[in-house]
């Protein structure tokens, strides 16, 4: 589904991603962990099409197509979804209007008719339940005045409505209380199918108890330094990241 090869990205001449390689197949769940500032969000944003980053090397294939050539909206219509680490507030635009515009744009791309007001309302009400959100959030302006946890929950609500093929969740767990974490994780699990894939960026092993990853990757200094099974997350929880850096340095230092 997704193939990232030797991806380099920089901002104002500073390289942030320095050769990322990652392959994600349909049906898989991948977790990306790594220290603050290592480039996790940058990777997520680059995949979603943020043009603030300059791609200096490498390629990204999504379902065999060159992802980097597509506009952000085209990626979304093709099924890529990013749950933002910092969801953006949009005063004056209701959550429901926003979602309806997004959903209908995606449906049009897939050759489907617009949903009418009643069908749309049925759909969103059902998906709100998935993340245990109140209907009042539909009429509120997107993320404006939402608490930190509500914003994160709202991202998963959007995901539930838009049904992406490749969902990238950037620290969706941070800011969620213990109950909310379980609810959101349950929601994500329900949305996970054989024909879609999920990439979760997180700092905490706790989330991975609920959403069990097939692979865990460690991103350090803009590169995936180590990949492993879900046990790797437990190791990181226990030992931190230094040993991975040390290991990597050892392998890089000429003998």
């Amino acid at each position: 589904m997704l193939e990232i090869r030797n991806l380099h990205a920089s901002v104002n001449g500073n390289e942030i991603l320095s050769g990322v390689d990652l392959t994600v197949r349909a049906g898989e769940i991948h977790a990306i962990m790594g220290p603050n500032g290592s480039g996790k969000s940058t990777l997520a944003q680059v995949l979603a099409g943020r043009d603030a980053y300059e791609i200096t090397e490498g390629e990204v294939l999504y379902e065999g197509k060159n992802l980097l050539e597509m506009d952000p909206e085209e990626r979304a219509r093709e099924g890529v979804f990013l749950a933002f680490q910092y969801p953006v507030e949009i005063p004056g635009v209701s959550n429901s209007y926003f979602l309806k515009s997004a959903l209908n744009a995606i449906r049009k791309h897939r050759g489907l008719e617009d949903l009418d007001a009643i069908e749309f309302l049925q759909l969103v009400k059902q998906r709100l339940k998935l993340v245990d959100m109140d209907e009042s959030f539909l009429q509120r302006p997107v993320n404006e005045g939402f608490s930190g946890g509500e914003k994160k929950r709202n991202e998963i609500f959007h995901m539930a409505v838009l049904e992406p093929k490749l969902a990238i969740l950037d620290e969706t767990d941070s800011g969620l209380d213990i109950d909310a974490l379980r609810i959101v994780a349950d929601g994500v699990n329900k949305l996970h199918r054989k024909d879609n894939a999920i990439v979760i960026v997180t700092h905490y092993q706790r989330l991975l108890n609920y959403i069990v990853p097939d692979f865990v990757h460690v991103l350090v200094d803009g590169r995936i330094m180590k990949s492993g099974s879900k046990e790797l997350a437990l190791q990181l929880e226990e030992k931190g990241y230094d040993w991975i850096k040390a290991e990597a340095e050892k392998s890089l230092t000429p003998a």
Binding site: E73, A76, L82, V88, I90, G92, F98, A102, A105, I106
Partner: peptide, 24 residues
């Protein structure tokens, strides 16, 4: 970018945000 990343094209995104500015 937030709007576009959810599938809304650039023109409509500008339209929605501009109208949102006017809406109050």
């Amino acid at each position: 970018f937030y709007l576009r990343s959810r599938g809304i094209d650039e023109k409509l995104a500008a339209d929605i945000l501009t109208f949102a500015f006017a809406s109050d």
